[in-house]
Structures are given as C-alpha cells and as structure tokens.
C-alpha cells in the first residue's frame, strides 16, 4: 500500500520533471553570465581556470559562506557526538603490508593535496579538492595505526588561521579597493605560478581549512563510544 502510493507519487513527479528537462536542449551554447566570465576571466582576475576565478573571485563571498557552513557542520557533529565517556579506539593494528604502505604513501598524498590547491588557478583543482585529498591521507593513517591521533589543538589553530586569512584578505580589499575581496595584488602573467593576485592565497587558506575540518569530522566519527 505504502509502496504503491510512493510509486504513484514518484510517477507523477517524474513525469513532470522529465517533461521539463527533456524539452531543454542538450549541448547548446547559452548566452548567460557564464559568457561574461569566460571572456573576461584573464583580463579581470588573471586566473586561467575559469571555475577557480568564479569560486574565489566573482562569487568569493558565497565561498566564505560555504566554508562557514562546513565549519558549523563539523562543530555540530562534535556537539552531537560529544560524550564524557569518550575513550581511545581499541581496534587492532592493520597488517604489516597496510602499515608499511600507509607510512610510505602518507607524505605523498599530503604532497599531492598541497600541489592540487597551490595550482588551483592553473590546472583543475583547488582548495576544496586539495583539502579532501589531504583528509583521505589522514584517513589512511587512521585505518593503519591504532595509536594514530589527530592533534586537535594544531587542527583548530590551522583552521582558525586559515579562516582569519580569508577574512583579512577580504577586508584588505574592502579598505584598498572599496568592496569585499577586491584583488589588490598585481595580476602577473597568466599561466605563471605566482599570478592572479589574491586568488592563490585565498585558495591555499580554503585548502587548509577544508582539510582540517574534514579530518575533525572523521576523528569525531571514529572516536565515539561503542
């Protein structure tokens, strides 16, 4: 009965949903705000990767809000799972093969994450991807070693400093150029590592912040009782 009603509702919903989207032409050029971004990204922001220039520069204030949502989610998870009886994990160590491979790969994965967010304005990638890759590296160590502990003081210091950098850069732009997150550094030549003004600084800060927050989420989930 319940299933039949659900399937009927989904059928009606799916019919209208599909009729809207299947009438939308697929793969055609649309004249929207994206056209302006594509044509002016190099002259206005100096960033070669248009996605990065939208995330950090054109919609930078939005990104600040999204990073705040991430921070609130990790804090909220800590509050939900808070338990006084929280104890150390008591699983067994993984096998020697996993442990050795993890020790070798851990610095490489951290390096890959750092590469991805430092080159965010040149190649595909950026702060969000780099932060997620760093969190997977820490996850490998969590899985391999029983005694591996995330340093919460260090993580919160990194997280706060990264957020502070983002806001400080934005406010400097406000003082210097009249609006939040104005690019106050020289743009440089496109396709250079040091180019695009404040975009690499902000994306590196976002990378550290996302990496620290996702690590805290994993640590909170692993350390709850039971």
């Amino acid at each position: 009965m319940r299933k039949a009603v659900a399937i009927l509702l989904l059928g009606i919903f799916g019919y209208y949903f599909a009729s809207i989207f299947l009438s939308l032409p697929f793969g055609e050029k649309r004249e929207g705000v994206g056209k302006h971004y594509l044509e002016n990204t190099i002259s206005e922001t100096g960033s070669v990767n248009t996605v990065t220039s939208i995330v950090v520069s054109y919609r930078g204030f939005d990104t600040l809000g999204e990073v705040t949502v991430l921070f609130l989610a990790s804090t909220g998870l800590g509050a939900i799972l808070f338990d006084v009886r929280r104890k150390k994990r008591n699983e067994q160590n993984a096998s020697p093969i996993v442990r050795t491979t993890s020790t070798v790969f851990y610095p490489m994965i951290i390096l890959l994450g750092a590469y991805v967010f430092v080159h965010g304005h040149l190649t595909p990638g950026g702060g969000f991807q780099g932060g997620a890759i760093i969190a997977t590296g820490v996850l490998l160590m969590f899985m391999a070693y029983r005694k591996f502990e995330a340093n919460h003081t260090l993580l919160s210091v990194i997280e706060s400093l990264a957020g502070l950098t983002f806001v400080t850069v934005g406010l400097t732009g406000l003082i210097y150029g009249g609006s939040f997150l104005v690019n106050f550094l020289p743009l440089g030549t496109p396709n250079d590592l040091v180019s695009a003004g404040v975009i690499p600084i902000i994306y590196i800060a976002v990378g550290f912040k996302v990496g620290a927050e996702l690590t805290v989420v994993l640590d909170d989930m692993l350390k709850t009782i039971r």
């Binding site: 929207g32 594509l38 949502v69 950026g126 969000f128 927050e213 989420v217």
Partner: peptide
C-alpha cells in the same frame, strides 16, 4: 559553461558535511 561547475564543486563538499551530521 563554468557557472554550474563552480556551484556543484562546493555543493559536493557541503553534501559530505550534511551526510556526516
């Protein structure tokens, strides 16, 4: 079009945080 890509980029990360909560 780069605009949907930049929206989805952040939406995936937020989705992970929402799933975790």
């Amino acid at each position: 079009d780069p605009v949907p890509q930049s929206l989805v980029l952040t939406a995936i990360v937020i989705g992970l945080a929402v799933t975790a909560v």
